[in-house]
Amino acid sequence: MATELTRRKFLMALAATGLSLRLPSLMAASTGETITRTIPSSGETLPAIGMGTWRTFNVGGDQYLIDQRTDVLKTFFDLGGTLVDSSPMYGSAAEVMGEALDTLNARDKLFSATKIWTGDGDATREQDRASRRKWGIERFDLQQVHNLVAWQAHLETLQQMKANGEVRYVGITTSHGRRHGDFERIMEAEPLDFVQLTYNVLDREAEERLLPLARERGIAVIVNRPFQGGSLFQRFQSEPLPSWAGEAGCGNWAEFFLKFILSHPAVTCAIPATTKVEHMKENMGAMVGPLPDEQQRSQMADYVAGL
């Protein structure tokens, strides 16, 4: 039976086609469904986008900037984020975080993660205490040994602290792809809840050994430098997103970079850092809608490499 194609029917069909392409994303957004991951050692769930504070929250006593960062943190919590990561290495970031948490009265929404960063292996508890005071919290959800500095001594103390209930989870960190050999050996030998490492669409060394090992050993993975410290935007933001980006659930470059990371099955959480509310909204957009499949991940990596 022949059907006449009117202008009205054509436009309706076009609208339906467009809607169907966006449907998974729209459904996720409308139901408030966010992408969460499970911490293997406990079964606790975490939103898949966290927040880093490297460079962004070290603003000293600048009240104008503290207020701006508080707005960023508020947006993060409002959009369903919980994990905030910092380090004593990041200058005044911990004090600023404490002040922002005071202002927002939002410690109940927080999954607090920081690091031990001192070459003195006997100073683990002292630094933990100092960090807790700055954040204004009774205990950290996650304490990590920063860049493997004096890791044997710190890890031993952190494990004791975990056993005593002074910290909930213990982990180690690296960044920029450094010391992956040592990192791997520690992951194999030590009972870790979390590891934190650098992984993004260009820096993919972790795919070879560390990410598979994390899955095998049941270790949660936090990904730092998801935008390569911002350089991914500098390099690619002027370029168009591929025409198929929507099918992979990506409406902008932030979602493109973050969903590439989140779609790796070993990844628990990515921790982008930003100073702007608008950028935080874009980052949190990656926690909604479909994730790319294996074939789309390859396409994403190839597309970026070809630009």
């Binding site: 460079r55 600048d62 900037l65 200058g91």
Partner: peptide, 14 residues
């Protein structure tokens, strides 16, 4: 840049 824990905005605001 690995040892610099702040950005130009913070510095100029000083």
């Amino acid at each position: 840049s690995d040892f610099l824990m702040f950005g130009p905005e913070v510095f100029l605001r000083l």
